[in-house]
Amino acid sequence: MLAFVIRRLAQAVMVMLAVGLIAFSLFRFVGDPVVFMLGQDATPEDRTRMTQMLGLDQPFYVQYANFVVRAAQGEFGLSLRQIRPVKTLIIERLPATLELSFVAGLFALVVGIALGVYTALRRGSWISHVFLAVSLIGVSLPTFLIGILLILVFAVLLGWLPSFGRGDTVAIGWWTSGFFTASGLKALILPAITLGLFQMTLIQRLVRSEMLEVLRTDYIKFARARGLTDSAVHFGHALKNTLVPVITITGLQLGAIIAFAIITETVFQWPGMGLLFIQAVNFADVPVMAAYLCLTALFFVIINLVVDLLYYAVDPRLRIDRTIAAH
């Protein structure tokens, strides 16, 4: 178990170093920063001085090492657009994105599993067919279109929910939260549904097909033969056996939710990292782009690690096992 965790951690560090290399390359390949900062008309002397000042005359690997050391401390330099530390910008924006992703993920997981179980158990009913048809729409429609449709219906036509922004937030230390105000919660609903809908339908379909498969197994039949109640059979025995693939997909999709929050945040003008990133791309704000890249990679790596550990918790067959089957 410990060896497994250490091995996984080592792999995670390798992944982060590789992503760091790509982020680092951004600085070199997205235009020459010296030209960018001094303009076309600078003298060669000015350029040389600037190059030395920025440390760009040093060998590639020294620059990369410096970048890694600073990145590990969260330092990605100044935003070229806002002339403020990237770290500060990210910290300002991180809570908005994480709260949105969390609610979207929760929505996807809870509603997805509930609908998946329902459509598996009531296979023939017309409600199941309706859910499946709706889920097909959820899978097929692009996120921005769903967001715009939701805004049209619930914000413009019905006027129930706000069409943009985060509402009022409460500051808890450096973290700003929308969970504690009515307007903050109302503002979360539409973006969270937009962001989580695709994942929700994915989880619903996955849970449904896994459930149908598990319900055909011998141990489910035997559980029924033992006279267990339907709810014990369905939830205690069947649902638990569908969890390993569901955890895998949910984990990967949670990373995707954070990464693809960009589109939802743009549609709803949500003041999160995705919006920050889009603005940075428009402006070729390389430090912000690099920081965003590294941070997103970090989320993926952490989520994957957690998923691997959850397998262990759910499936005893994966646990390292010194007991040999006795005859």
């Binding site: 141990y219 035997f222 559980a223 025995h237 056996n241 759910v314 499936d315 005893p316 067959r317």
Partner: peptide
Amino acid sequence: TSLNPLYT
């Protein structure tokens, strides 16, 4: 296959 693999 008669026993649920996830429970003791």
